[in-house]
Design a binder for these strands. Structure first.
Length: 510
RNA sequence: GCCGCGUUGGUCAAGGGGUUAAGACGCCUCCCUUUCACGGAGGAAUCACGGGUUCGAAUCCCGUACGUGGUACCA
């Protein structure tokens, strides 16, 4: 029988949730759902110095917005609680000590200064490696070099220590990555990583292995930046629980900056004018707010969609996927090996597609909120829905609805008179005066009826319909923009239409 | 420096021995619209380089270059 699929996302609560992080969650989530497995969120807060208040809650808010619901987590509970590593602190030490007992780890008493001195010395010698490894460990202050009594005495006198893994040289560590295939490491280049810190907390390396084992994780997907430390994790699995228990690994490609080189970072977003975090993140120390996709006007469906196809595709030409389709079609083997540069233009295109695709109801309230923020009072939701329907084709971001739809709720304060003036004369003026009274007679106020009245009158007066329509548009909107002019008139209503004509006629200075 | 991973148009990418090397974003042109968009029709633009293997290489192998990640008592 194959193991039940259990995957985890293991963020450390240190700040905003990066889009690369969300993609890692997404791939984990899709894989879990596809195989009827569990998706676990485990908080890796083993570095107390980097702890940021509110970051944990923020991560769950982001996941909620994205529609990525954990089966087990700090917030959702579960049979393997606690899901916060700081609360599991005591469980790691015994594994570290077990490793020492088995000869796979050792106590190291070196101070920060001593470590620095060691690196300086190696540098001076022109060494290729500044690592704490098999080459230099017998020169350091650790239980490998010290006599057992000496070590015991240091321990007895509460000398601060860390526990390091003992990597044997001249061995080969290999594993099969679900994306990259067979990967080999020569242990000569692997260092004796710290497993347990002086404060008693485990490092990521120990914690990830212990918790993946304890939480029965079957597949471990993480960013490519973890690949170099994979041999440490594999050795730990071998020493502690046996390789047959080890989850299957997949190292996801990185998301890179659109210009230059390197991993995409929050700073690139600030610099190039696009979001990197899923939602607005307010730094509790500086109160500085970093914009998120959500607040910038992205739909969660679009955000998920664009992330899914950044480094993955199903081999067909399909680009727009619902979550259900993604779950159905996702396969980790089809994830790319190479990193992908993030393209904000394409990201916006996805959002545009989703604005057109989704039922208006699903985001009407978000748009309403935007209009309320802009100061529009007493918004009729039926009218707003109609407005959205009318202008959604020309909105790329949810925030564009203001620009594209504000004039349905607030009459224009200024007019594009430069466009009207060359066409303006007494005949036009009279046309609009008569139009007002004709409008009053229209029984069923809809676009077709208005167009009818408008065109009949224009023909009667022998005026160019195109010119009149342009002027009518500017009268209603203020500028040359928006959907079909008669649809605008219909939507704002009969009274408002005549009011705006009347008002504009008094405004024109020519 | 050393170690790992990678490399198809500007970007995302399909294709994994024989293809006119898909498609999408963006860009350009035209059509539609006396608005701005949407939409439609076209267009420019790609297998990093050098060696092999092969009748035949974008595809397989080896180098090189370039990119990227790691090299912390951070994750």
């Amino acid at each position: 029988m194959t193991k039940k699929v259990r995957v985890r996302f293991a963020p450390s609560p240190t700040g905003g949730l990066h889009l690369g992080g969300v993609r890692t969650v997404l791939f984990n989530y899709l894989f879990a759902k596809k195989h009827n497995g569990d998706f676990i969120v485990r908080i890796e807060d083993t570095d107390q110095a980097r702890y940021v208040a509110g970051a944990e809650e923020y991560i769950f808010d982001c996941l909620e917005w994205c529609g990525l619901h954990p089966n087990e987590s700090v917030a959702h509970g579960g049979p393997y609680a606690p899901y916060r590593q700081s609360e599991r602190k005591d469980s790691y030490k015994k594994y570290a000590e077990q490793l020492i007992k088995d000869g796979h780890a050792y106590y190291a008493f070196d101070t920060t200064e001593e470590l620095e001195a060691m690196r300086e010395k190696l540098k001076a010698k022109g060494s290729n490696s500044l690592q704490y490894d098999h080459r230099i460990r017998m020169e350091m202050n650790n239980s490998l070099r010290l006599l057992p009594e000496e070590t015991q005495q240091l321990l007895d006198t509460n000398t601060p220590y860390v526990i390091r893994i003992k990597i044997n040289p001249n061995e080969s560590v290999s594993f099969t990555d679900m994306i990259r295939g067979d990967i080999n490491f020569d242990t000569n280049y692997v260092d004796d990583k710290v497993l347990l810190k002086a404060d008693g907390m485990p490092t990521y390396h120990l914690a990830v292995v212990v918790d993946d084992y304890l939480m029965k994780i079957s597949h471990a997907f993480r960013g490519e930046e973890w690949l170099p430390s994979a041999p440490v994790h594999i050795l730990l699995w071998k020493y502690l629980f046996g390789l047959h228990e080890m989850p299957q690994w997949a190292h996801l490609p990185l998301i890179l900056k659109p210009d230059g080189n390197g991993k995409l970072s929050k700073r690139d977003g600030d610099r190039l004018g696009f979001p990197v975090y899923a939602m607005d993140w307010k730094d509790p120390k500086t109160s500085e707010i970093t914009k998120g996709f959500k607040e910038l006007g992205f739909l969660p469906e679009a955000f998920i969609n664009l992330l899914a196809v950044l480094g993955w595709n199903d081999g067909s030409e399909q680009e727009i996927f619902t979550m259900e389709e993604l779950i159905d079609k996702f396969s980790i083997e089809r994830v790319h090996k190479g990193g992908a540069k993030f393209d904000f233009e394409k990201a916006k295109w996805f959002n545009h597609e989703w604005i057109k695709k989704l039922a208006v109801d699903s985001y009407m309230m978000t748009v309403k909120q935007l209009f309320v923020q802009k100061g529009v009072k007493n918004i009729d939701e039926g009218k707003l829905t109609k407005v959205i329907e009318l202008v959604k084709d020309r909105c790329t971001l949810l925030t564009d609805f203001w620009e594209q739809g504000h004039f349905f709720f607030t009459p224009p304060k200024t007019f594009d008179e430069a466009s009207i003036q060359p066409k303006w004369d007494e005949g036009k003026k009279e046309f609009f005066n008569v139009l007002m009274s004709k409008c009053a007679d229209v029984q069923i106020w809809d676009a077709v009826a208005i167009e009818n009245v408008f065109k009949t009158l224009a023909t009667e007066k022998k005026l160019k319909i195109g010119e009149l329509q342009m002027i009518f548009r500017i009268i209603l909107v203020g500028t040359k923009m928006g959907p079909q002019v008669f649809a605008i008139a219909e939507t704002i209503g009969k009274q408002e239409t005549t009011d705006r004509i009347n008002n504009a006629l008094h405004h024109f200075y020519f």
